[in-house]
């Protein structure tokens, strides 16, 4: 026993160092792409477009959405979407085709972490731009402003990070298709559709007919967007329940991803690439 303890401490330390250096290098890399990141941030304005429509629509009153409710919900959705951006399928496919994956596989760390950490690094670079966009929004339209409580902000940050991880795990699982087909990134287009319509990005889930709401809630998509948005906007939401379901989904996709990775690698080495 006495021997195991130090070595496990060492391995934790080792991982810590690996993660730290990976993060620093990925952060430096992402700084190079800052112009693109700003444009990507700008392209996430869909929730704001939907906000203007819902505010004008007569139906909002029937659902009991007042302006304050709508603006805080959609602006939260905008923020959540900014920090849950995942593009791993595209990049994984590219690395696979260009043969960059082989050297990664020779390194003593699962490539998963490289992609995961580069996404996190990108999000850190987004932070100031998202704040500038929000500031601009609130200056143009002061009535949009709301201030969530500190506890809600903390809970929301945790929820956003978990939502990002869940979305990443889902995409990672589907990225494994690259081992079998050379156009796996077109699957991403399909994955985008339920995300768009069922996550609460274009309409609050409350507006859906009960059947469709039930269908949406039995997929992981609302937990990627609607759940963290509601925490942030300060609306009624079953926090414990939401976190629980989110973690179950994360577990499912973590396992699926591991299995797919194992089979994928077998296929990959079988091809002799």
């Amino acid at each position: 026993m006495g021997r195991i303890l130090p070595s496990s401490v060492n391995s934790i330390k080792r991982y810590f160092y690996i993660f730290r250096s990976l993060f620093i290098s990925q952060y430096a890399l992402m700084i190079e792409y800052r112009a693109e990141i700003v444009l990507w941030a700008l392209s996430g304005i869909l929730p704001l477009i939907m906000l203007t429509i819902w505010k004008e629509a007569d139906i909002s009153k029937e659902f009991g959405f007042n302006h304050k409710w709508l603006s805080s919900y959609f602006i939260s959705a905008f923020i959540v979407r900014q920090f849950t951006a995942v593009w791993v399928m595209v990049i994984f496919e590219k690395d696979n085709i260009e043969g960059k994956l082989s050297p990664y596989l020779l390194q003593p760390i699962n490539p998963f972490w490289r992609y995961y950490i580069s996404h996190i690094a990108e999000q850190f670079i987004r932070i100031p731009f998202v704040f500038i966009m929000l500031l601009l929004l609130f200056v143009l339209e002061p009535s949009f402003f709301w201030s969530p409580s500190l506890i809600r902000i903390i809970l929301a940050i945790i929820a956003i990070f978990s939502a990002f991880t869940l979305r990443f795990l889902i995409h990672w699982f589907f990225s494994m298709l690259c081992f079998w087909t050379d156009r796996a990134s077109s699957i991403e287009r399909l994955l985008m559709i339920p995300y768009l319509f069922l996550s609460g990005l274009v309409a609050p889930l409350e507006a859906f007919p009960p059947v469709i709401r039930f269908v949406a809630l039995s997929t992981p998509f609302p937990y990627i967007l609607s759940f963290p948005s509601k925490i942030l906007s300060g609306q009624d939401v079953n926090i414990i329940n939401g976190y629980l379901v989110m973690f179950i989904w994360m577990l499912i996709f973590l396992l699926l991803g591991r299995v797919a990775w194992k089979f994928g690698l077998r296929k990959y080495s079988g091809m002799g690439a």
């Binding site: 112009a35 693109e36 444009l39 990507w40 700008l42 392209s43 996430g44 304005i45 869909l46 477009i49």
Partner: peptide, 15 residues
């Protein structure tokens, strides 16, 4: 990298 600028246009056109 104009791809990204194009993506901004595309996302606005969703309106």
């Amino acid at each position: 990298r104009v791809w990204n600028a194009n993506e901004v246009l595309r996302s606005t056109l969703v309106a």
